[in-house]
Design a protein around this nucleic acid. Sequence first.
DNA 1: ATCGACGATGTTTACGTCAACATCTGCTCG
DNA 2: CGAGCAGATGTTGACGTAAACATCGTCGAT
Lengths: 346, 346
Amino acid sequence: MTDTTQQAPGRARRAPSMADVAAHAGVSSQTVSRVANGLTNVDDGTRDRVLESMTELGYRPNKAARALRSGRTRSIGITMFTLSSYGNMRTLDAITVQAARAGYSVTVVPVEYPTQRDVAVALDRLREQDVDGLIIVIESHIVDGADVELPVGLPVVVIDSATRTDYPVVDNDQAQGAALATQHLLELGHSGVWHIAGPRTSYSAARREQSWGDTLRAAGITPPPVFRGDWSTASGYEIGLQIAERPEITAVFASNDQMALGLLRALHERGRAVPASISVVGFDDMPESDSFWPPLTTVHQDFDEIGRRAITTLLREIEEGPSLSTQPLTPTRLVVRASTAPPPAR
Amino acid sequence: MTDTTQQAPGRARRAPSMADVAAHAGVSSQTVSRVANGLTNVDDGTRDRVLESMTELGYRPNKAARALRSGRTRSIGITMFTLSSYGNMRTLDAITVQAARAGYSVTVVPVEYPTQRDVAVALDRLREQDVDGLIIVIESHIVDGADVELPVGLPVVVIDSATRTDYPVVDNDQAQGAALATQHLLELGHSGVWHIAGPRTSYSAARREQSWGDTLRAAGITPPPVFRGDWSTASGYEIGLQIAERPEITAVFASNDQMALGLLRALHERGRAVPASISVVGFDDMPESDSFWPPLTTVHQDFDEIGRRAITTLLREIEEGPSLSTQPLTPTRLVVRASTAPPPAR
DNA sequence: ATCGACGATGTTTACGTCAACATCTGCTCG
DNA sequence: CGAGCAGATGTTGACGTAAACATCGTCGAT
């Protein structure tokens, strides 16, 4: 029978405020504030009494009031295209976990279509949320567009992007990964490596493609024309049907695991044995990849690390002001499984 | 030179408030408020002048102040286990998109480990966010636990859960899907259907398992003991190695696509042809499933629809108060591909 | 013993918005 | 031609918190 507040019909009762706790504990609300914020200059006895009252009344600090007063919300915003890509999802997962550990909450605003307008709308929405910082997981060429106005004075970290130099960028080292994949195939003795690239809109795809070409050229090989997919298994499959007909192709580096999977399917259907007749390397290392048939050799990206570093960097910016420290890219590593082998003897 | 505010060094200048706009437009801040909220009792000329000032100063309403004043934040919270399951991810994606369309933002709080303590912490955190409503995507037996105190008076929608009847539940019809899968195998002529179940902690897994058994019994068949996995491809693979050794098993219904994939791999390795020697059906219909080898027959779940209905239901609760309308489950459908066939002739 | 410093606690006020109420203008109607 | 009314606009205060400042008591140094 400690509850003396009124319960409006069908409505939540008003949450207890600092004033309620203060009255209950017989102190001023400022003392409650001090306890709530863990300041040290409070007598132990008083503190205990306040804490007890808090528990009894079920007090929770009101975030809106706190935000209004302090201008800080302890929440960060993140905007990205469809969550339905393996990398984005893993990154988001890592970010929410890390943010929670640091006491921040995460507001997600999706961008439905990769247009400047939609991105602008998303950023606008985020700005209204009064977030303390922003993580943007969007291709830079769209973010850079004229219609997109980045929030002024708001800490920002960019993932999977590049050209803007005024924000810290956190990302996997796409170039290093692609080089790893290409090099692996060359070392197995393949005289050429074909490439299934990602869509033109993707900066990651461009970097992998560039690095694949560079690696070949460094080995004295002229890169063949790329096949271009759109990340989907379906596009990998379509391209795979073409590749299957060309016996001179003995090694393919696909820009993600899903396209590699589509490729594997096409090769199965057309009777090209993997890896006996043709080797395949992917990129991402999805948890499913080790159960593809054959288990896929691929480049592992550490998305947990990306999320961790994005949060670390952003929180440092929020708490210590803008810094211009350049972030090193996170290295990837090659996971060799059963889809690669030396080229068939001729 | 309209900017008279001071720029603190290295800090964002204070965002313009209604008072700033009011001063600029030569009206009272209340009039600005009326314009901002689209009230009609404002002179057209005045309105235009205010809107112009807003644009010029780059005014955005302060969400914290608005929330403090009105008690509504136009944001909803969602908590779920690891985002890294296909279903959770797709659901979250759909929810963020739908929420954005309705003008709500979404705060995601992850639950790192499926313990009551972690769930309680997550809900606590969400309550502090002053969200207007909550979507919980967590197994009900944990939510129901004694340590978990659900927010009082806050609209809640539950996904992938069950036993509590005091909140609306939105979900796919797991039972119907499992029946579809089992029935399909029986109709192909298999005399028994084995099952790779999901973990005991999962309510979805339990429902699929139950329905599989019921369907067999309805056909006069005693269900064999289940194999129990943990949703991962690795567990499917381990179980698959056992199944491969038992020629009497000619039909397997796996509780998700990933375990089905692991199973396929084990069967390949042990030389059991799919579907000639053994048929496999999955559950989920991941976008990759049509490129498994062979392309996987599976049960398609409509996660977009789940997200849509979760938001619709929650917003109705928020805006019109609690309703006790029972939600029909969303039907699933069987997608027949190449991993199922009649049993081998003996 | 006295003064000052410091620690604990209380009081006041501002953050930005919006509901409620107050005021003012111009116009209609008898 | 004045009372009354409607619509436009202004003023005040409250939401819950925390910074800034004020007050009070205690204890140590001289």
